[in-house]
Design a protein around this nucleic acid. Structure first.
Length: 455
RNA sequence: GUGAUUGUAGCUCAGCUGGUUAGAGCGCUGGUUUGUGGAUCCAGAGGUCGCCGGUUCGAACCCGGUCUUUCACCCCA
């Protein structure tokens, strides 16, 4: 029988021990931070009913959903005429479930289903993989983890403040320094589209403007006129594009620019409030950049929006989020506003790898390997092994009789720092030989002594 | 989804305009060393050249398809 070469589905990865150590370093930092800020953990199923997922991410998003084929005879409901009408007619008949696409929509579903048990404001965090049938690229996978923290049931801008604080804390702990938290407010974008005379078209405006740092103002203008924005509105936009540096001066400028737009001024006021809360809290504005052209695709955002970009790396945003006034509305629960954001662990991993920011990770490792020469040594070693583990020392006994060289090589490869050698002399005296592989020092001592050394 | 791009040993890569038995470094296994790892030296194992088909006397090399990788667009973490 010919053996097939094993392979992974496109856009998925294995995480070996070394990678897991690094990933856990990131995940633990994020979890710590969430808990420190009073968020509680939630997990939801890998799969949701397709009806829960579709229509929440736009047409593009629906295309990117992984659908799960129904069990059993999944063709039994499909009629000839359905088949002739094409894939979109057949899909709902053969697939009733899908893999989650993000953590926000399952969260909204959870809130609606448990509205009577939940105490609002509800602060939850959730760390689970999500799946997108996207075309993979660097920093873009079909299976990746999101680390979401959301607060629902309050309009307080303290939530926005806390998001900024959590991002700053996580990045500081990870050793990431050169990054920007870009913050904007959808209301400001709405205001801008009103002021330039294109009311209600902020969606399109966002899509075009979002590309500014990528393709430049010239190309954005082209795209805007292709989208039938008038020449005069485009020229009115130009001072906004060329805004000077500094959060304060940008806000001042927009205050006068948006003086005729009530909603625009509301957005400015919200943003100013967040900055003021920040300084009350005793934190400064470093790494925080008010970016008027930050748009973000997801259409459910209605207030603040965030995105975090690490500078000088070839990877897109590593974190993002915003406020949504009515996320649960689509599940029939009105008036629950929320704000949340998400860390992309996989991208943070790639960034840290690129910048070589990982500390030496051998933490999750065995402390000592017990080696021996014969059956007697093995049996003696088993007793020692029990005592070491009793004392809480991560330890291994080489599982089979082998040349001592092989046992040492095993310790060396696995980067185990200590080796115990149990030979005739040690057994006779009831002691152990403890060797530090880094220094090469070896001493004979009691088990109790060795536990002290290893601790 | 559109347009490119990549695939040769476990890993990183050579391999000329198509021509005998496809190479190197690292790694791996064994020895040098029968109570001690990393170094040196020696030896060895390991490849249907991503897969399927075609052209040819002959294909790792040319052509078509397919999968995979990377990149741009789209969108996004």
């Amino acid at each position: 029988m010919p053996v097939q070469k094993p392979s992974l589905p496109k856009g998925t990865r294995d995480f070996g021990p070394l990678q897991m150590a690094k990933r856990n370093f990131i995940l633990d930092t994020i979890k710590d931070t969430f808990r420190l800020f009073g968020f509680q953990q939630l997990e939801t199923p890998t799969m949701e009913n397709l009806s829960t997922l579709t229509g929440k991410y736009g047409d593009e998003g629906d295309q990117l959903l992984f659908k799960i084929l129904n069990s059993g005879d999944f063709l039994k409901n499909v009629k000839e005429e359905d088949y002739r009408s094409g894939a979109s007619a057949v899909l709902p008949l053969v697939a009733g479930k899908g893999l989650r696409y993000d953590l926000t929509v399952p969260f909204a579903r959870y809130v609606v289903m448990n509205r009577n048990e939940i105490t609002f404001p509800f602060k939850r965090f959730q760390i689970q993989p999500v799946w997108r049938a996207d075309r993979p690229q660097r920093g873009r996978y079909r299976e990746f983890y999101q680390c979401d923290a959301d607060v629902v049931g309050t309009d307080s801008l303290t939530c926005e403040l806390e998001i900024l604080l959590m991002i700053k804390r996580v990045f500081a702990k990870l050793g990431l320094k050169d990054y920007d938290i870009k913050i904007n407010n959808r209301k400001i974008l709405t205001g801008i589209s009103e002021v330039i005379g294109e009311s209600g078209r902020e969606g399109e405006l966002c899509v075009a403007i979002d590309k500014l740092d990528k393709i430049g103002w010239e190309k954005v203008q082209e795209e805007l006129s292709q989208r039938n924005f008038s020449a005069s509105s485009i020229s009115k936009l130009s001072p906004v594009i060329n805004l000077s540096q500094g959060n304060k001066s940008k806000l001042e400028f927009l205050k006068s620019f948006l003086k005729d737009s009530e909603i625009g001024l509301k957005g400015i006021a919200e943003l100013e409030e967040v900055f003021s809360l920040l300084s009350r809290y005793g934190e400064n504005e470093s790494n925080i950049d008010f970016d008027v052209v930050l748009a973000r695709g997801l259409s459910y955002y209605t207030g603040a929006i965030f995105e975090v970009k690490v500078n000088n790396v070839s990877i897109g945003s590593v974190s993002g989020g915003g406020r949504y006034d009515n996320l649960t509305g689509m599940f029939g629960l009105e008036g629950v506003s929320g704000v949340g954001f998400s860390f992309g662990v996989d991208r943070i991993y790639d960034v840290m790898e690129e910048l070589e920011l990982f500390p030496d990770h051998q933490a999750e490792n065995t402390k000592v390997l017990i080696t021996y020469f014969d059956q007697e040594g093995f049996e003696y070693g088993l007793g020692i092994l029990g005592k070491l583990r009793q004392a809480g020392i991560s330890s291994e006994l080489y599982p089979e009789q082998a040349k001592i060289k092989k046992q040492f090589t095993y310790a060396d490869k696995k980067q185990i720092p200590f080796v115990m050698v149990l030979g005739d002399n040690e057994i006779k005296e009831g002691k152990v030989g403890l060797k530090n592989l880094q220094t090469g020092n070896q001493e004979m001592m009691d088990v109790a002594e060795s536990i002290e050394v290893l601790r």
